[in-house]
Amino acid sequence: MPYKDKLFRLAKRILVSRDEAEDAVQEVYLKLWKGKQKISKYDNPEAFAVTMTKNYCLDRLRSKQAGNLKIVHSNYEHSDNVERKVEARDGVNMVFEIMETLPETQRIVLQLRDVEQYEFAEIAKMLDSNETAIRVNLSRARKTVREALKKQYNYGIK
């Protein structure tokens, strides 16, 4: 399963819940499997899989079934200094929480660019958009995270 983790991370970014994300990935693979003959015609199967995952997750999010999603956090990496570790964990946690509050499109763009490091052209293809729109969304998402983070830090100091 070549893109399993990438698709899973994207699904989890959109759906937040780990279980929901795993179900979504399973479902997407099933769909890809059924359309196996068709997928070989696409020049970029990875982009196609990402697009499918995104659409499926957004559908899930809008359906009534997903009305009671719960937030499940994973464990985070450790660093040497305990004090720093606690601080970093809080900061990182905060970033994840802020990301959850972003509009869906911004969240997806941020995930695809800053987490998965896709080129703008690829993201534009995946989201059926153009590079300028992607850059605008990305800039907004990054700025929102920065502002929210600053606010949290100031609150901690004051």
Binding site: E77, A88, F96
Partner: peptide, 21 residues
């Protein structure tokens, strides 16, 4: 103050799915 952002992205990138398809 910018560090958590980039650390978060790095961490998010390492997350893996446990399930078998």
């Amino acid at each position: 103050s910018y560090a958590p952002m980039f650390q978060a992205f790095e961490q998010a990138h390492k997350e893996c799915s446990q399930q078998e398809i």
